[in-house]
Design a binder for these strands. Structure first.
Length: 564
RNA sequence: UGGGGGAUCGUCUAACGGCAGGACGACGGGUUCUGGCCCCGUUAAUCCAGGUUCGAAUCCUGGUCCCUCAGCCA
């Protein structure tokens, strides 16, 4: 087995495609499509579908179209079209010149509908919506035939054309396929194909007052575009017989094969449009691109990279079984990417002042710091060191437990890229007992971080020079929900009951190394020993930096603490 | 209680009648100027019961559990 075969994804969809290719189907071509409805923002579940469809096209030398499934004008908007295009592009996929809209096919779809009528396979039904529901039957009882089911072809054609012409009120008639009211599959109980809806369409304006339904439009759009494999999620499995029925009933360019896979679920979050909408409209978050949202815009704003998401989508695989992926896998993919690419800097989130009593007042040294140990080409930079510095408050403990290696009275540690430091005195607020400052001594012989006498130190601390540091606001994000599967909330409980009210902690007065003053929105850094942080794209400004914590570093110390 | 799907380590996923493998997690160790990265190791699974077969996660029979469908949404 060569390397490519080792890394090539294997899943049941690719198995099917391989089989089709082996049987010389579709002229050995593979054509897929990603068909979002422009009625919301893309989230990481869509990313799974995008990676699958575009990934298959890439792997088989085929094509993947971006098609907006815009058949319902009351829900769809241009704003969503633009955000979806931006997100797909950002994820790293290119539809080239194959940007399509179902609305581009409205005229052809109408003609196909006339064909269906001519063949006696569709009729205009004048039952009300409520009556249609009533006639449909139940899970165990067959439906009843509409009294309009046997209208003549001529009458149906006339009525359907007049529906288009706007002669009827909304809801007065619908076009229905004439299939089987007794079918055990509801989708085949004379499904609605067209409805009258006087609504302004974001692309066709007021040109139409009748709009095709998903089941009717989707299969025909796939066929018009020459799609070979129409990949969708599991809930459309019941619709497949209808998909096939329509294409069999008409003379169409081709008959794509619909394949269903299980949608993505992720722990500690929700991924349904309705629930995400609730989070936004009920202000549990600050918009669709809130860094806690699983939307692509939210993840991007948080600092999650496209490469990490692509890698994640490859790792989770594709299958038909319902599943919930551990969000820790996304974190893993993120760290894997950011470890390679993110420049290292030092930043102190909760500062404690340290005065180095044996360091000359007024003196400033420029020390060399490596930008990225994983990438020698990233080079190094100078950072200022002086008598007064800040260290992380959690890096000092007056009375340390057994496995705490960091600074404590009398103990020596290393300041990264600087000197060994030993704590000699703890200065406290008389009233509160809070630590105000630490007085320490440094060893001038250890400049750069190594002791000539070979003595070792158990910890290395990050720090910033007090007078040189830039201030910043840093937001610490954690899971939006306290429940692993908030979407499964039962017995009258709302999924929002398990919202994590501490999912965002805002820290002000954080102190960062001076080079960060020039950081611009979207920049991602590793704050050494802490995690990866991204300059917020909306609220950060020069002189008033705002960082979002993308993900923490793996943290062995916190695990040790949890155990005890 | 009709139809359509699905059940493999804690989680995700391979296997296409022939050694149940990988990844994440967890745990242990090595290394280290990031308690990071990296390296090594341990843990741990075929829903149940029968049957076919030299051999079954895979095929057959029967059961159990889960998801899904009664929009003029997609």
């Amino acid at each position: 087995m060569n390397e490519q075969e080792l890394s090539a994804p294997s899943d049941f969809i690719r198995n099917i495609i391989n089989q089709d290719l082996g049987e010389n189907k579709n002229n050995k071509k593979v054509a897929t499509r990603f068909p979002p409805e422009p009625n919301g923002y893309l989230h990481i579940g869509h990313a799974k579908s995008i990676c699958l469809n575009f990934g298959i096209a890439r792997d088989y030398g085929g094509t993947c179209n971006l098609r907006f499934d815009d058949t319902n004008p009351v829900r769809e908007e241009t704003e969503y079209v633009e955000s979806i295009k931006e997100d797909v592009r950002w994820l790293g996929f290119d539809w080239k010149d194959r940007l399509y809209f179902t609305s581009d096919y409205f005229e052809r779809l109408f003609q196909y509908a006339e064909q269906l009528i001519l063949k006696g396979k569709a009729y205009v039904c004048s039952l009300t919506a409520e009556e249609i529901r009533d006639y449909r039957g139940t899970l165990t009882e067959p439906g009843r035939k509409s009294p309009y089911r046997n209208r003549s072809v001529a009458e149906n054609l006339d009525l359907f054309r007049r529906m288009r012409a706007g002669e009827f009120e909304d809801g007065a008639h619908v076009l229905r396929a004439k299939i089987d009211m007794a079918s055990s599959n509801f989708n085949l109980r004379d499904p609605t194909l067209y409805r009258i809806r006087r609504a302004h369409h974001h692309r066709t304006g007021d040109a139409w007052c009748i709009y095709p339904m998903y089941d009717y439009a989707h299969c025909l759009s796939d066929s018009i575009e020459g799609i070979t494999h129409s990949i969708c999620t599991l809930e459309f499995e019941n619709n497949r017989p209808l998909y096939d029925w329509i294409l069999d009933a008409l003379e169409t360019p081709c008959h794509p094969r619909q394949i269903e896979f299980a949608r993505l679920n992720l722990t500690y979050t929700v991924l349904s449009k309705r629930k995400l909408m609730t989070l936004v409209t009920d202000k549990f978050v600050d918009g669709w691109d809130d860094p806690r949202m699983p939307t692509l815009s939210g993840l991007r704003r948080r600092g999650v990279t496209a490469a990490a998401i692509r890698n994640f989508c490859e790792k989770i695989g594709v299958a038909k079984r319902d599943s919930v992926v551990d969000i820790a896998l996304l974190d893993y993919c993120l760290r894997e990417d950011l470890n390679r690419t993110a420049p290292r800097v030092m930043g102190v989130l909760r500062p404690v002042k340290v005065v180095i009593t044996n360091y000359p007042e007024g003196r400033v040294e420029e020390l060399d710091a490596v930008n990225n140990p994983e990438n020698p080409e990233a080079g190094s930079r100078k950072i200022p060191f002086s008598r007064e510095i800040f260290i992380e408050s959690e890096d000092f403990m007056e009375d340390p437990p057994r496995k705490f290696f960091r600074l404590s009275p009398g103990r020596e540690v290393r300041l990264r890229y600087a000197y060994f430091l030993k704590c000699t005195e703890v200065v406290k607020d008389e009233k509160s007992g809070d630590i105000i400052e630490l007085r320490c001594v440094y060893d001038p012989e250890t400049r750069g971080g190594d002791a000539p006498d070979g003595r070792k130190v158990k910890a290395t601390l990050h720090w910033v020079s007090a007078s040189h540091a830039v201030s910043a606001t840093v937001r610490l994000y954690s899971h939006l929900f306290t429940e692993e599967n908030p979407g499964a909330a039962k017995d009258g409980k709302a999924f929002t009951d398990s919202i994590n009210h501490g999912s965002m902690e805002v820290l002000t007065g954080c102190r960062l190394e001076p080079g960060l003053a020039g950081a611009v929105p979207g920049n991602i850094f590793q704050f050494e020993r802490l995690g990866y942080f991204c300059v917020d794209s909306k609220e950060s400004a020069p002189g008033a930096l705002v960082f979002n914590r993308t993900v923490t570093l793996r943290d062995e110390w916190s695990r040790i603490q949890k155990k005890s």
